[in-house]
Simulated assay, not measured.
Amino acid sequence: MAFHPPKETAEMAVGIGEKKANFPLSTQVVLGFLGGAFVAFGFLLTVRVTGNLPAEWGSIVSLIGGAVFPVGLVLVILAGAELLTGNMMALPMARASKKITTMAIVKNWTVLTITNFIGAIFVAYLFGHYLGFTSTGPFLERTVAMAGSKIDDTFMQAFVSGIGANWLVCLAVWVAFSAKDVAGKILGIWFPIMAFVAIGFQHVVANMFIIPAAIFAGYYTWVDYLVNFVPVFLGNAVGGAVFVGCLYWFTYMRKTTQ
């Protein structure tokens, strides 16, 4: 399975970031909706697979959930969609290379925050709540427990957890960029995403599914969601933009732009 070396991957990431920032608004809206829905499908699958597993299995339950969750990002990368957290890496790299403006980043992140949320809650309500896949029996218990574990974090805990989540998510995107074939892209995505889910880090788009799913079932409030959203968003931005985008740009692209 051939792959591009890191410097070539950095150049690709800059170009992809520039392209994403210049997508027409209609394209960003449609692909943003799909991105939120695809990640939500991954989390819905996690709930359905782990909901009946015995608590005595301990962290094995988290490992199994992490092993199925990556289908969401596989769909984003291979089927085509726009995901806020991946763009938190690619667009800052394009900005550092002076290919786009800061306002372009603000506009893109704003559109994707809204459209990823719409896609995620669409899946949470229609398939999770209406069909009962997250609102009945052990699946409800699992949904509430997972949502509660996110909401119970303090601001700083959620912020730091968000850094860890998007550091790994953007590494998954980075490795997917580097791979030259479909199998390599899937493997490159799978392991970092499995790691972030099994560890229990907080991902802003994933939370757009699991917390509203619990809210639709009568648990928690939208205020609880907003209190969680802010630190996780900020942490994800730091994890993607700084720990992946900026560090790799500094390492591989800095001299080419001077």
Rank of each mutant, 00 (worst) to 15 (best):
L112T: 00
T221Q: 06
A198M: 13
C170D: 01
L31G: 00
F159M: 06
Y252Q: 06
N108G: 09
F38W: 13
D224I: 12
T113Y: 14
V39S: 01
L140S: 01
V123M: 06
N236Q: 10
T221Y: 11
T9R: 07
Y248R: 11
I189K: 09
F69E: 06
Y248N: 01
G32H: 08
L53Y: 09
A94Q: 03
T101I: 08
K99S: 02
F191P: 01
K255M: 15
S178R: 13
A195S: 08
R254L: 15
T27E: 11
F139G: 00
A147C: 03
A13Q: 03
Y130G: 04
F38M: 13
I151R: 11
L112P: 02
V29L: 14
M12P: 02
L34H: 07
F43Q: 05
A172Y: 05
T257V: 15
A81G: 08
A81T: 04
V74Y: 12
V223C: 00
I163D: 00
F243H: 00
F33Y: 10
A179T: 05
I151K: 10
A217I: 12
G42E: 10
T115L: 15
A124M: 10
V74W: 15
F196R: 05
A217E: 05
E18D: 04
I199V: 09
M12C: 03
I151G: 02
W174Q: 06
G235M: 10
V205A: 02
N166C: 13
A120G: 08
A158P: 09
S59C: 01
S149G: 02
S26G: 08
V111L: 13
L131G: 10
V230R: 00
P138G: 08
T113H: 13
A237F: 14
T46L: 15
A90P: 05
F201C: 07
V182N: 12
P70S: 04
A179Y: 11
F117Q: 02
M208N: 02
G65K: 06
G184P: 07
W109E: 03
G36F: 12
G240P: 03
V232D: 02
A79F: 08
I64D: 03
A94S: 03
F159K: 01
G36D: 09
